[in-house]
Amino acid sequence: MIRVENLTHVYNKGLAYETKAVDDVSFTVEDGAFIGIIGHTGSGKSTLIQHLNGILKPDSGKIFVDDIEITNKKTKMAEIRKKVGLVFQYPEYQLFEETVYKDIAFGPKNLGLSDDEVDFRVKEAMALVNISFDEFAERSPFELSGGQKRRVAIAGVIAMKPAVLILDEPSAGLDPKAHTDILNMISMIRKQTGNTIILVSHNMGDIAQLSDLVFVMDHGKLASAGPPSEVFADTAFLQGIGLGLPPATEMAHYLAARGCAADNIILTRDELVDFLAETFGSGGEAK
């Protein structure tokens, strides 16, 4: 379980541009939950998640992951890294080794694990990100496509076997096929590891489809939190802070204004197609 208590982080303290990037944020996340975090650029999403694996230290407040207080200065970074893995935006820029194998093995080796254990973890991580061991282990990561590079970088984090996996915009800049591959990969990792997953994304459709709970950040505050069906029902609030709706929800809203309202909120493309087929399927057909 993750427990965040009154977390505050101030950038440029004492300067004219002093900003509270994270402002008194508190929440808990149950084991195995899938959390989606949304908010426009500068709302504090990235600053918040960088606290969860100890890269940033708060100005005030505490974070507990299971029984470890990761905001305590005495807690070793290696302990935190074993608990929480963070995949940055554009993680492929951090690949550096000669081979895919060495790149993924780098973290586990630094944990002081045996060669056998490292080998096992590299194979397991590559299977989870759907990169063939036989084909790619000895290749240079720099020869791979953008989507493949990114999956190798994610494998490097997974090989640390964190209980919590945080992904910051994991599909940004990828083409549509690579985007879908990454989403499928995240679902598979969740299914096979039971990890708690925290996904930061601007893609409301992805967030609505995958998340158990959605956290909305605005001006450093946790402005709203709840299941997608609640968070995305408050259209006026989301638009007020510069966020949109999942496209399926938006279309359902538009239809409701034209007199064709659905009984329940529509979040995904599947739900929308079902609703449209029922509503327009028979009566709407051309003669």
């Binding site: 279309m251 064709c260 087929a277 399927g281």
Partner: peptide
Amino acid sequence: RLRARGVFVPQGLLSMRELADDLVARK
């Protein structure tokens, strides 16, 4: 996907609003 479910939808509707307007008008 609607066509695959047997719903008649003409070609050439590119935006969400065009599609919604067409479905409503047809009904």
